[in-house]
Design a protein around this nucleic acid. Structure first.
Length: 472
RNA sequence: GGAACAGUAGCUCAAAGGAAGAGCGUUGGCCUGUUAAGUCAAUGGUUACGUGUUCGAGUCACGUCUGUUCCGCCA
């Protein structure tokens, strides 16, 4: 037939390498050059990546191709589109490769000598400074796929259990979320602030007619939907304006916050454990190629650690018992242990890493070191709070059963000198058809760091925001 | 917010106050089934910035900026 446009099948590297197109068929692949080597045997090896899998796809370009002079000059980072036959590879490292019949160079690298992303290990710090190019590296590519796998698994986990994903607001007009310093959202002219009679900034002139901030937690909002749809969760960006300079804090991060009605602390802990197991299993099943890389180059133990989580039950322990264990440990801690004090990193690390050796759920903390919304236990000294501590990363989940009894809640507000007015709609939930309910927050980036073994949280989010740093 | 450490070639790092170097990359050869490191050569620098001490500063002092690590706050 004449005049028929030949429709070429376009395959990703992943599809190509898994044998989706039979040997002998003709397909097109697109990607960026990772390595290129010319052979005097009259052809070039061009290995390209397109993000679909860890492995590169090898394209063989014969010197009979009309643009072979250009092809021979390809360097790391160039983008190409290649069409040709699927053939069995004669070399090591891949089962199939492409014998190109056509190879279009889409984009050159302007100055190969200074192209920052060489096919060799770079310091994470350097990659961070090149956050626009680092997704082309093995490590960030692999991290991105694992991150995506975790995110999809989180949604799948909840969807399979009839949870509704609630899109809680990013902008909040209440400054009473109680989880930390907040970023102000304002359209007021900083050079010329409107003032009221008392000389204070007049926020009634601001965009929302009152003070507004970026959310530090979707929990308070999501509780309203919990007390109607029973099983809900949020999964979105969260902002903390704290001056935290550590490898596990971000100013902007993603958080997963399930909230379940008619559930107590025990069920809450069970849910947290089930979710962690589910998403770790997903990574093991779906991203073996990337995890293999992390095990090889980043953290030898990362795969066995995930297997541990999937296969073994989490340890559960009361705060009070944990204090006893710490006291009896004969370890010399920098901060002394005493019932009533908040656990320091060194204590959490000892419990999770040395004493238990796998994730541990600590429960029932003294009420004075926990948030106002946590449910008071019958002993009236502790609240139904829980933290999941993971070896190596520390607190990965924090949660609690919420105080659903209005009188008790109001007492708590009074004790902490918080105003009932500020929490009027939150109190309404306790006035109208209140039920026991529980929930927790999973720091998503902490989870990604834990899964991959990448030690700095700034390297498991595309564009990290931290104090004094918001490049890109 | 506190403490410690660091900044030298595109990258990874040397250089005990006395001539700024190596490996990788890149470019050009040689080799040829290679795929982060075969081989020969070439290329590559305002030593973060500023001030000072010194005959002489990458090196010492002070300040600034940036980054890392640990702690605190938390997820």
């Amino acid at each position: 037939m004449t005049g028929v446009i030949k429709k070429m099948t376009v395959l990703s590297a992943s599809e190509f390498l898994s044998g989706k197109a039979p040997v002998g068929s003709e397909v097109t692949v697109n990607g960026w050059v990772r390595t290129s080597k010319n052979s005097k045997g009259g052809f070039s090896f061009i290995n390209i990546h397109d993000g679909s899998c860890f492995a590169t796809l090898q394209v063989i370009a014969d010197d009979k191709l009309s643009n072979y002079d250009d092809i021979a000059k390809l360097t790391t980072g160039c983008s190409i589109s290649a069409t040709g036959k699927v053939v069995e590879s004669q070399g090591k490292g891949q089962s199939f490769e492409m014998q190109a019949s056509e190879l279009n160079i889409l984009g050159w690298v302007e100055d190969p000598a200074t192209y920052p992303m060489q096919p060799k290990p770079h310091k994470m710090e350097f990659l961070r400074e090149n956050a626009h190019l680092r997704p082309r590296t093995n490590i960030i590519g692999a991290m991105t796929r694992v991150r995506n796998c975790l995110a999809q698994a989180i949604h799948r986990f909840h969807y399979e259990r009839d949870f509704n994903w609630i899109h809680t607001p990013i902008v909040t007009a209440s400054d009473c979320e109680g989880a930390g310093e907040m970023f102000r959202v304002s359209t007021l002219d900083l050079e010329n602030l409107p003032r009221n009679e008392q000389g204070k900034v007049d926020f009634s002139k601001d965009f929302f007619g009152k003070e507004a901030f970026l959310t530090v937690s979707g929990q308070l909002n999501v509780e309203t939907y919990c007390l109607a749809l029973s099983k809900v969760y949020t999964f979105g960006p969260t902002f903390r304006a704290e001056n935290s300079n550590t490898s596990r804090h971000l100013s902007e991060f993603w958080m997963v916050e399930p909230e379940v009605a008619f559930a107590d602390l025990k069920q809450n802990a069970d849910l947290a454990e089930a979710m962690l197991k589910y998403i770790c299993k997903a990574v093991l099943n779906e991203r073996g190629d990337d995890m293999e890389f992390f095990a090889q180059r980043v953290d030898k133990t990362c795969i066995s650690r995930l297997e541990q989580i999937v296969e073994h039950d989490f340890e559960r322990m009361d705060y009070t018992d944990a204090i006893e264990i710490l006291k009896k440990s004969n370890k010399s801690f920098e901060f002394p242990v005493e019932w009533g004090v908040d656990l320091q990193s060194e204590h959490e690390r000892f419990l999770a890493e040395e004493h238990i050796g796998r994730p541990i759920i600590l429960m029932n903390y003294p009420k004075d070191i926990k948030a106002f919304y946590m449910r008071l236990n019958d002993d009236e000294k502790t609240v139904a709070a829980m933290d999941v501590l993971a070896p190596g990363i520390g607190e990965i989940i924090g949660g609690s059963q919420r105080e659903e009894r209005l009188e008790v809640f109001d007492q708590r507000l009074d004790q902490m000198e918080l105003s009932r007015e500020d929490y009027w709609w939150y109190r309404d939930l306790r006035r109208y058809g209140t039920v026991p309910h529980s929930g927790f927050g999973l720091g998503f980036e902490r989870m990604v760091a834990y899964a991959t073994g990448i030690s700095n949280i700034r390297d498991v989010i595309p564009f990290p925001r931290t104090p004094k740093s918001a490049e890109f």
